[in-house]
Protein backbone atom coordinates (compact mmCIF):
# COMPACT_ATOMS: atom_id res chain seq x y z
CA UNK A 1 0.00 0.00 0.00
CA UNK A 2 1.34 3.41 -0.91
CA UNK A 3 1.70 6.10 1.72
CA UNK A 4 -0.85 8.37 0.09
CA UNK A 5 -3.45 5.60 0.28
CA UNK A 6 -2.91 5.15 4.01
CA UNK A 7 -2.35 8.80 4.93
CA UNK A 8 -3.80 10.92 2.15
CA UNK A 9 -2.20 14.19 3.28
CA UNK A 10 1.33 12.68 3.13
CA UNK A 11 2.33 12.07 -0.48
CA UNK A 12 5.34 10.03 -1.62
CA UNK A 13 7.12 11.85 -4.46
CA UNK A 14 10.52 10.73 -5.78
CA UNK A 15 12.69 8.24 -3.93
CA UNK A 16 12.95 9.39 -0.30
CA UNK A 17 11.03 12.58 -0.95
CA UNK A 18 7.70 13.18 0.72
CA UNK A 19 5.21 16.02 0.55
CA UNK A 20 2.76 17.29 3.15
CA UNK A 21 -0.01 19.45 1.70
CA UNK A 22 -1.58 21.99 4.02
CA UNK A 23 -4.61 24.18 3.23
CA UNK A 24 -3.70 27.87 3.40
CA UNK A 25 -7.15 28.66 4.75
CA UNK A 26 -6.34 26.88 8.00
CA UNK A 27 -2.58 27.20 8.45
CA UNK A 28 -0.62 30.43 8.62
CA UNK A 29 2.90 30.89 7.28
CA UNK A 30 4.29 31.31 10.81
CA UNK A 31 2.87 27.96 11.99
CA UNK A 32 4.08 26.08 8.89
CA UNK A 33 7.61 27.47 9.30
CA UNK A 34 7.79 27.04 13.08
CA UNK A 35 6.79 23.38 12.83
CA UNK A 36 9.14 22.69 9.89
CA UNK A 37 12.04 24.26 11.76
CA UNK A 38 11.82 21.51 14.41
CA UNK A 39 12.41 18.83 11.77
CA UNK A 40 15.53 20.26 10.20
CA UNK A 41 17.90 18.11 12.26
CA UNK A 42 16.85 14.91 10.49
CA UNK A 43 15.41 16.19 7.21
CA UNK A 44 16.10 18.63 4.45
CA UNK A 45 12.93 20.67 4.34
CA UNK A 46 11.57 22.87 1.59
CA UNK A 47 8.42 24.95 1.81
CA UNK A 48 6.68 26.28 -1.28
CA UNK A 49 3.28 27.34 -2.45
CA UNK A 50 1.50 24.66 -4.51
CA UNK A 51 -1.41 26.79 -5.66
CA UNK A 52 -3.76 29.42 -4.29
CA UNK A 53 -5.22 26.97 -1.80
CA UNK A 54 -2.33 24.79 -0.64
CA UNK A 55 1.17 25.15 0.70
CA UNK A 56 3.55 22.21 0.28
CA UNK A 57 6.21 21.06 2.73
CA UNK A 58 8.72 18.63 1.19
CA UNK A 59 10.88 16.40 3.40
CA UNK A 60 13.95 14.41 2.42
CA UNK A 61 15.83 12.37 5.00
CA UNK A 62 19.45 13.40 5.56
CA UNK A 63 20.31 9.76 6.22
CA UNK A 64 20.04 8.13 2.80
CA UNK A 65 20.59 4.64 4.20
CA UNK A 66 17.67 4.75 6.61
CA UNK A 67 14.23 4.11 5.19
CA UNK A 68 12.14 7.17 5.93
CA UNK A 69 9.42 6.47 8.48
CA UNK A 70 7.23 8.89 6.58
CA UNK A 71 3.89 8.18 8.10
CA UNK A 72 5.04 8.55 11.66
CA UNK A 73 7.55 11.38 11.26
CA UNK A 74 5.43 13.43 8.92
CA UNK A 75 2.33 12.66 10.91
CA UNK A 76 4.25 14.21 13.80
CA UNK A 77 4.88 17.23 11.58
CA UNK A 78 1.13 17.54 11.00
CA UNK A 79 0.51 17.42 14.74
CA UNK A 80 3.24 19.99 15.31
CA UNK A 81 1.86 22.42 12.75
CA UNK A 82 -1.57 22.03 14.34
CA UNK A 83 -0.07 22.83 17.75
CA UNK A 84 1.70 25.89 16.36
CA UNK A 85 -1.48 27.11 14.68
CA UNK A 86 -3.51 26.67 17.88
CA UNK A 87 -0.87 28.70 19.73
CA UNK A 88 -1.27 31.50 17.17
CA UNK A 89 -5.06 31.36 17.34
CA UNK A 90 -5.08 31.42 21.13
CA UNK A 91 -2.68 34.31 21.18
CA UNK A 92 -4.94 36.28 18.86
CA UNK A 93 -7.92 35.57 21.05
CA UNK A 94 -6.45 35.79 24.55
CA UNK A 95 -3.07 37.43 23.93
CA UNK A 96 -4.18 40.72 25.48
CA UNK A 97 -5.06 38.88 28.68
CA UNK A 98 -1.68 37.16 28.65
CA UNK A 99 0.10 40.50 28.16
CA UNK A 100 -1.81 42.03 31.07
CA UNK A 101 -1.02 39.12 33.39
CA UNK A 102 2.64 39.06 32.30
CA UNK A 103 3.08 42.81 32.83
CA UNK A 104 1.37 42.51 36.21
CA UNK A 105 3.77 39.73 37.23
CA UNK A 106 6.84 41.89 36.59
CA UNK A 107 5.36 45.18 37.84
CA UNK A 108 6.86 44.76 41.34
CA UNK A 109 10.33 45.00 39.77
CA UNK A 110 9.60 48.50 38.46
CA UNK A 111 8.35 49.63 41.86
CA UNK A 112 11.24 47.99 43.68
CA UNK A 113 13.00 50.07 46.33
CA UNK A 114 16.57 49.04 46.99
CA UNK A 115 17.29 49.14 50.71
CA UNK A 116 20.55 50.36 52.23
Amino acid sequence: MKHEEKVPFIIACDAGLYLVKLPKAFYEREAVFAAAYLFREKYHVRIDSIDDNYVGVWFQSKDETAPMPAQFALGEYCNEVLDQQVRLDLNKRYGALREAVYEHAFAPLRERKVWG
Binding site: Y94, L97, R98
Partner: peptide, 26 residues
Amino acid sequence: YEQVFDGPVIRDLAYNSCVETMPGCA
Protein backbone atom coordinates in the same frame (compact mmCIF):
# COMPACT_ATOMS: atom_id res chain seq x y z
CA TYR B 1 19.67 41.33 40.64
CA GLU B 2 18.29 42.96 37.50
CA GLN B 3 20.28 40.69 35.19
CA VAL B 4 18.94 37.63 36.97
CA PHE B 5 15.35 38.53 37.83
CA ASP B 6 14.58 40.73 34.86
CA GLY B 7 16.50 38.52 32.44
CA PRO B 8 15.43 36.42 29.46
CA VAL B 9 15.10 33.05 31.24
CA ILE B 10 12.56 34.19 33.83
CA ARG B 11 10.68 36.39 31.36
CA ASP B 12 10.48 33.64 28.75
CA LEU B 13 9.18 31.17 31.35
CA ALA B 14 6.51 33.55 32.61
CA TYR B 15 5.39 34.59 29.11
CA ASN B 16 5.06 31.01 27.91
CA SER B 17 3.35 29.61 30.99
CA CYS B 18 0.08 31.55 31.02
CA VAL B 19 -2.56 28.82 30.78
CA GLU B 20 -4.90 31.37 29.21
CA THR B 21 -3.04 31.04 25.90
CA MET B 22 -1.70 27.49 26.08
CA PRO B 23 -3.13 24.81 23.77
CA GLY B 24 -5.20 22.36 25.76
CA CYS B 25 -5.28 24.69 28.79
CA ALA B 26 -7.07 27.69 27.29
